[in-house]
Write a protein that binds this DNA or RNA. Structure first.
Length: 792
DNA sequence: GGACTCCGTATACC
DNA sequence: ACGGGTATACGGAGTCC
């Protein structure tokens, strides 16, 4: 089992593997803080359907017929990377001789499968992994952050603009060393040279930065080139280079170009934060400052500066700017302390460099484990099947309104449990290792969870918390892997079976709850929010009740209480708010907290929800009147009503698609074009709507937020009032028509009174079924029966 | 010209 | 190189009366 997870080669202390030549790699070994290297030959390979495509290929190569009858039955190996690429071109030509339509790229070749990362190939072939026998603390990690000037009149600093430049570089490490380099008394060229010399002197194993791939590294590289500074910071004296020059695609789809530095690892804490949040969904944005607050390591005297005032600070308060830069580097280090340990642990298992593990998705990780074992056992591998998954999680809503008390009960690891219980595995996975891997990963996670609960201090707790979290995401993605179109071992039927089994278990749980006189409010995939029966008085009763439910579910299915709440506002599927016993309010759902909504709308809805959860109708009314007056009197700031969108297409793509009628004009692009700004894909624009009527086209009446002048406010008041009413309308179903209009009205002629107003709770199930009944004109059934069933 | 549907895009939940 | 389906909201364009 160890071999499955950790690879068959137990060599220790490897801290990096990078290409040395086109037929060898260099391993960097660390022992007693000394780095040694060793160069190892390796044999590039690809998979092929039939040896006939390599017939008469003149250069040295081996073709090995593999066991089993999966699609790719031959493994072809070569003596050098270049010769492997030669062979790929050879196969491409051979294939095209008889192909119905000509293929130009190896990626479209259905008869060949190749992974173009030489290091991943080498590690898979040899069963080696990085960091064996090491602790996270053994790594020497260095953090960097830079501050740059921006030419007057421009919003973003641009390394290609001669007037813009790097003025401060802060460096910190995980041993308490801190250093600032700045350009007050030296040229930028001298500053860059000092930086390069420092990196070589400190000789870090890992270089960390927040958005280092998207900003710091490309910026430094560009300036080094412009100033003729040799950025030879690789441990073999080489300069940083893009990971795979063949794939310019990555740049477009990822929005950044990953770099490599020979003998070292690069960690972008922005990427770590993003992948942490895909499962957690608790971060408002991915800025370093916000992350520091979220994890609670912001220092008391931390310096905050406005990003668009950096140039001003450099000219007027350079010391403050330097402290700010240093604080950024420090926080990057602390963020990495939190998020990197799980990447470190995964790197001990996976056939990739540390920096690759940090970048790759969960699917690539699972597949690498499968492939490594298939190579070891010399077994043929499948190709992805074509099709789609047809079933997903079960989502339903039974009641709207405000209800309570509420228990959120979860089926623990629903999909992984089903896969193990029912032995659901890809049909092409002939070695039977898919479930063994899953089983083992679950064991490791449970172990981490136990250690987390037994932790004696906060640090230890966080360490194991992160660890079990990393495994949780990997474990949960085994199900996603089954339905992933590009996965070699995908199996849509298997994915559907898992989803269906999940739906059935949720259905059983719902039945148990209603049978016990509990009231189910809403269900999503693996969890249920419900009002426990009146006989349940306290937390202990709730625990007992859940245990009783679990006993009636299939064995191996465990329930856990995810949360307890005083009240719940149920709006629509996946859209609700919770009032905790500590008074805290959590709002969920895109229609209640979407980032596309104007800030004032979000604020207004938040206020209303908090007031509704506390039965304070006066406050709801006051909020409405207050926002109405503020909009009407131009008293909101542009920050409150501006909308911010990402420009996902380039100027040319947008113009062409509009011309061809493939897409509509949209305000964010129009405003960017109109203001003459040039943008990169992924840039954001903030804009607002102008004009004096509601019915006008948005894209013809918009302006950049920066152009808004508080002395001559020209925002579209009727439009923003209409938006306010649209927000209010979300609460329409919670009240009688009369009450709704009394609350959300500015007509205070007779004064507003909340007397006699109450929130309606409705049974959604009942209405939905009646509607469905009308639609399908199915057999008429007495409403009494539906009522009965609903009350069960 | 307003009410309606359709469609693509964006965001969020699990 | 890239996990998945389910769900709501919204702007713009086309269609109908």
């Amino acid at each position: 089992m160890d071999q499955l997870l950790y690879g068959s080669n137990s060599e220790e202390n490897i801290i990096a593997v990078h290409p040395a030549s086109d037929h060898s790699v260099r391993m960097y070994i660390k022992s007693h803080d000394q780095i040694t290297t060793s160069e190892v030959e390796f044999y590039p390979f690809f998979y092929l359907v039939s040896p006939k495509y390599l017939k008469d290929y003149p250069k040295k190569h081996w073709i090995k017929e593999l066991n089993g009858d999966n699609y790719f039955r031959y493994l072809c190996a070569f003596t050098s990377w270049l010769e492997m690429w030669d062979a790929i071109r050879f196969v491409l030509d051979r294939y095209n001789e008889n192909a119905p339509s000509k293929i130009y790229s190896y990626t479209d070749l259905p008869i060949l499968h190749v992974r173009t990362d030489p290091i991943a190939q080498f590690l898979k072939q040899t069963g080696r992994t990085l960091f064996k026998g090491m602790k996270f603390e053994d790594l020497y990690r260095l953090q960097i952050d830079i501050e740059t000037l921006t030419k007057r009149g421009f919003k973003f600093s641009n390394p290609h603009r001669l007037e813009d430049k790097i003025v401060v570089i802060a460096l910190t490490d995980n041993r308490g060393w801190e250093h600032i380099i700045h350009a007050k008394r030296k040229s930028e060229k001298e500053l860059l040279q000092e930086f390069v010399d420092l990196i070589r002197e400190k000789d870090p194993d890992v270089i960390e930065g927040h958005n280092i791939f998207g900003f710091d590294l490309p910026y430094i590289l560009t300036r080094c080139e412009m100033m003729s500074v040799d950025m030879d910071i690789g441990r073999d004296g080489s300069t940083p280079h893009p990971v795979d020059t063949r794939l310019s695609y990555a740049e477009r789809s990822l929005g950044y170009t990953p770099y490599e530095i020979a003998g070292r690892q690069i960690i972008d804490t922005l990427l770590l934060l993003q992948s942490y949040d895909t499962a957690n969904r608790s971060l408002e944005n991915y800025s370093l400052k916000n992350a520091a607050k979220h994890f609670g390591f912001t220092k008391k005297d931390r310096v905050y500066l406005q990003p668009d005032r950096i140039t001003w600070h450099w000219e007027n308060e350079p010391d403050k700017l330097m402290r700010y830069c240093l604080d950024d580097a420090r926080e990057t280090g602390m963020l990495s302390d939190h998020l990197s340990p799980c990447v470190f642990l995964l790197t001990q298992m996976l056939p990739f460099n540390y920096s690759s593990v940090a970048r790759l998705g969960t699917s690539a990780k699972i597949e690498s484990l499968l492939l490594r074992e298939y190579i070891r056992q010399k077994h043929s591998i499948p190709k992805p099947e074509i099709g789609t998954q047809t079933l997903g999680g079960y989502t339903d809503i039974f009641h709207t309104g405000v209800l309570g008390p509420v228990v959120d009960v979860d089926v623990e690891s629903l999909y992984p449990s089903i896969m193990l219980n029912e032995k659901i595995t890809p049909k092409t996975e002939k070695l039977g290792i898919f479930l063994s891997l899953l089983d083992e990963l679950i064991k490791i996670r449970l172990d981490a969870k136990r250690k987390m609960e037994a932790a004696s201090n906060q640090n230890e707790y966080l360490k194991f918390e992160n660890l079990q979290h990393a495994f949780k995401t990997l474990i949960n993605s085994f199900y996603g892997y089954l339905g992933y179109s590009k996965a070699l071992f995908n199996d849509y039927k298997a994915a559907d079976s898992v989803a269906q089994a999940g739906q059935i278990i949720l259905g059983q749980l719902i039945s148990r709850i209603t049978e016990s006189e509990g009231k189910v409010i809403e269900v999503d995939t693996d969890g249920v929010y419900f009002v426990p029966p009146k006989t349940v008085l306290d937390e202990k009763d709730e625990v007992d009740l859940i245990e009783a439910f679990a006993a009636q579910l299939p064995s191996g299915i465990k329930l856990q209480i995810n949360g307890r709440y005083e009240r719940m506002l149920s709006y629509k599927k996946k859209n609700y708010a919770l009032l905790g016993y500590d008074g805290r309010v959590i709002v969920k759902g895109s229609s209640l907290i979407s980032r596309t909504m104007e800030k004032y709308g979000r604020d207004f809805i938040k206020l209303c929800i908090e007031a509704l959860l506390n039965n304070d109708f006066d406050k709801v009314h006051d909020s409405y009147v207050s926002y109405h007056k503020s909009i009407d009197g131009h008293r909101l700031s542009v920050k409150d009503f501006a909308r911010t969108e990402t420009l996902r297409d380039s100027y040319d793509d947008y113009i062409n698609e509009v011309k061809e009628g493939k897409r509509n004009r949209s305000a964010c692009y129009e405003v960017a074009i109109q203001s003459g700004m040039s943008w990169k894909v992924g840039d954001k624009v903030s804009y607002y709507f102008t004009g004096a009527e509601t019915g006008v086209k948005g894209f013809e009446n918009c302006k950049l937020a920066d152009e808004w002048d508080p002395n001559f406010p020209d925002e579209n008041v009727p439009y923003y009032l209409k938006r306010l009413d649209e927000c209010a309308k979300k609460f329409e179903d919670f009240f009688s028509e009369k009450d709704f209009h009394a609350i959300f009205s500015i007509d205070d002629l007779f004064g507003f009174s909340s007397q006699g107003i109450y929130i309606l709770t409705k049974s959604v199930k009942l209405e939905a079924r009646e509607a469905q009944e009308e639609e399908t004109e199915s057999i008429h059934v007495e409403p009494k029966i539906w009522l009965d069933e609903d009350m069960l």
